[in-house]
Design a protein around this nucleic acid. Structure first.
Lengths: 250, 250
DNA sequence: GCGCTGATTATGTATAGACATAGAACGTCC
DNA sequence: GGACGTTCTATGTCTATACATAATCAGCGC
């Protein structure tokens, strides 16, 4: 079993070490959604059978996945795909609905516009894509204590998230739905301060120009963009906090 | 060697598993600064001697530390304490000087005020501390291409960083110096958009009120605050980006 | 039905031994 | 001196085995 070199598992390029290939294999099953959150991972002894290696090796893989928060393990019970993290401990720009609820304020949400179209050049720009795709274009606003709290403009890549077209986003905010249903592997935020543009000013019911915090986020799965969103917060209503520890030092 | 239970290494509470205690022990040596960046970690076989365990066990510890970015390992060479991350891959609010240099723009820096004092109530508030301490109070501005780029107000906890009092911050920006000389274990950012206050407006040479991005950061080592800084960027000159991947999914 | 007990089982931790491999150090040859 | 192989060694990976431990489950007595 110690022979290195090729021995491809399911036909993809072999990284090198056996345990890395096993890990890549399992991660792929999970991140691709084939094994959804809550799905039971085969027992260690089954994986030993599957990959024809020792238990120590699959144990190393599973321990690593658990440490990375991708799976959860319970003694005597088994290992399961972890629920997607609603809110990364790292960057606290979560689901706006949950955010407001946590503060104990009344939450309200309104879908302003919804359009499905082939991506325009501008859409592709915002998504950071080259190739065309179908997109769902949404704008909405979030209301806390009766006051407009955030204005959200979102693009969803329908090629990556076909089910999104079926969802009634007049009832459930797109961010909430996406967080709960679409696994992602990478995210990028850009944060700027600007004076609200006309759309935003209208949606936020701002009389005169005001400083706003603008958060633009793009989310990927496997190097393909899932969604791009720009959220505009009036200056006095939002405060973004990010707290972290250099990897693993907690 | 398989006897669990106590067996305290260096007299601190034993987490439980041997490899966890070894890890805690090494991490402590590193984060406390006793083993500074670049310091050579004992060879695996030496650690085996020290902790009286098998090489697999110390290997697991060292691999973990390497995965967490706390140490770097090189075959045939050894393991070394990693250089402090100048710029976390996670939150990109780095050294302003380096930032501007990377853009290839002319950089200039001016110390505006410097004061040493017993922390006032307000200072303690900004540091998030209860207990009094000595602080160094600095304000300065960063200039790119001849134009004020950022206004920085900083507090340094001199109890945590005594050498700071010796440094000539008219020559080297405090952020640059601190990043290079003081290890930290945790940081928190708060980001808001506001209209520049008077101090900031003057320092940034803004004629009229303008939307500014305000980044407040506090940095800790071992639960004690090292420094607190508030940086104000005129709206059109700065864009904060944060890119990340849920732990370990790279 | 209820609560206790003990068996079962998957994971958690640790071991010793083995071979692979990258890269530094050293020596050799031209 | 500089371009080469060779050796040496610390880390990288893997195995087979062992025992610990937590949680579940079945069986028992009442």
């Amino acid at each position: 079993m110690a022979t290195r070199a090729a021995k491809s598992i399911n036909g993809k390029a072999a990284p090198q070490a056996l345990y890395q290939r096993i890990r890549a294999d399992l991660e792929d099953k999970i991140l691709s959604g084939r094994w959804p959150p809550g799905h039971r991972i085969p027992f260690e002894h089954e994986l030993v059978e599957t990959y024809q290696c020792s238990r120590m090796t699959v144990n190393k893989v599973l321990s690593g996945l658990a440490a990375a928060g991708i799976i959860e393990r319970k003694r005597r019970v088994g290992s399961f795909v972890a629920k997607p993290v609603v809110q990364s401990a790292v960057l606290h720009i979560p689901d706006i609905q949950a955010e407001i609820a946590k503060r104990g304020e009344a939450y309200n949400y309104e879908l302003l516009t919804r359009k499905r179209r082939k991506a325009t050049k501008d859409d592709l720009d915002r998504l950071g894509m080259e190739q065309g795709c179908d997109v769902l274009v949404l704008s909405c606003r979030h209301i806390a204590k009766g006051r407009p709290f955030a204005y959200e403009e979102r693009l969803i890549n329908l090629d990556m998230v076909p089910p999104a077209v079926e969802i009634d986003f007049a009832r459930v905010p797109p961010g909430t739905w996406l967080l709960g249903h679409v696994p992602w592997s990478e995210a990028e935020h850009q944060i700027t301060a600007t004076l609200a543009d006309d759309d935003a000013r209208q949606a936020l019911a701002l009389r005169k120009p005001a400083a706003c915090l603008v958060v633009e986020r793009r989310t990927w799965r496997k190097r393909k963009v899932i969604t791009s969103v720009r959220v505009t917060y009036p200056n006095d209503l939002y405060r973004l906090t990010a707290r972290f520890t250099p990897a693993g030092r907690g």
